[in-house]
């Protein structure tokens, strides 16, 4: 198929560097210079604090005064902690919904780029929930999703029984996920639109002249050439849903009922801010960090078959 033949035009995010493929001396020197500010900032403000956090996770520190070294006790406690286990189960449920988080904004971006009627307006408007902060979004959905709320009223009209969407252990997590997806898809959409602008027009026209249908062009030309961006959105969304949902959890469900919407991030906040166990909170953070690293590795592996990380 002509579309596949055109693909080598796009490169993998990071190519396998062969020894011989290092650039000239000047290139290497400039390259180091170019990455230096980023590397310094990341080392000082993120990596070194992370290592410090790892040491805290090996202590029983209460946040004040002396900390006693307790080895892997915090990690062992995690294995016994049903709340932590529940939060991991919730995490897997959340991750199972990831394809939707990626495909929905991608599809919308392609449609807007394709010139769907009203596309320019949609492009501006889809971004609003992201601007208005989780407090407003939470206040709205609190009332929309409550037992006597408007969503149930709507369902009632088509004969579906009312459900306590946020208060029922089996629906709360999905309700939370739905609201967060709605509130943030505009950001991924923006990134996909930027990515779409690099898709070669000539290539599309060529495919068109070959007699390809629109949807065929999308699937065989557009989406493959978006691969670096899809990978980026997949990784960033995974990290986002695991580290950026505190605001919404806090206003919408407070982690409940029981532990139904307690994600590791919320548990870390509880352990550190409310239960004053920063050592234990640090241990959960380390596990979450390692977990996200593993998922990101898998995603990049799947996405770019010959990627080198």
């Amino acid at each position: 198929m002509s579309a596949t033949a055109a693909r080598p035009a796009t490169a993998r995010p990071v190519r396998k560097p062969k020894k011989a493929s290092y650039g000239s001396r000047a290139e290497r020197r400039f390259a180091f210079l170019f990455v230096l500010p980023a590397v310094l900032l990341v080392l000082v403000f993120r990596i070194i604090p992370l290592i410090w956090g790892f040491f805290i996770s090996l202590t029983d520190w209460s946040g004040l005064g002396e900390a006693e070294f307790i080895g892997i006790d915090n990690y062992a406690a995690m294995a016994r902690d049903p709340n932590f286990q529940d939060s991991m189960v919730n995490t897997f449920v959340l991750l199972a919904t990831l394809p939707v988080w990626i495909m929905l904004p991608m599809l919308l971006a392609i449609l807007i780029h394709q010139g769907v009627p009203g596309g320019k307006l949609f492009r501006a408007v889809y971004f609003f929930p992201a601007v208005l902060s989780s407090v407003i979004v939470g206040s709205i959905f609190n009332v929309v999703l409550r037992f006597d709320g408007s969503f149930n009223a709507l369902l009632g009209m088509v004969g579906i029984d009312a459900v306590d969407w946020l208060g029922n252990s089996s629906t709360a997590l999905f309700s939370l996920i739905g609201v967060q997806l709605w509130a943030t898809f505009g950001m991924s959409l923006l990134i996909f639109l930027a990515g779409l602008s690099t898709v070669s027009k000539e290539m599309l026209e060529a495919a068109r002249l070959d007699g390809a249908k629109l949807w065929q062009i999308w699937i065989f030309v557009v989406i493959p050439s978006l691969r670096p961006i899809i990978e980026f959105v997949a990784v960033v969304t995974t990290i986002g849903v695991l580290t950026n949902m505190f605001g919404l959890i806090y206003v919408l469900t407070a982690g409940g009922p029981g532990t139904a919407t307690t994600l590791p991030e919320f548990l870390i906040w509880l352990e550190q801010g409310r239960l004053n166990r920063p050592g234990y909170a640090a241990a959960i953070s380390m596990v979450l960090f390692a977990f996200m690293g593993g998922i990101a590795y898998l995603q990049i592996r799947i996405m770019s078959r010959n990627a080198n990380i």
């Binding site: 709340n83 208060g167 029922n168 252990s169 409940g256 009922p257 029981g258 532990t259 509880l270 004053n276």
Partner: peptide
């Protein structure tokens, strides 16, 4: 303790739901 109170908050919800 704070840990008991937090757990009771969770359990009180589960009791109400009949879980």
């Amino acid at each position: 303790t704070a840990a008991e109170l937090t757990e009771w908050q969770r359990q009180s919800q589960l009791l109400l739901n009949g879980d």
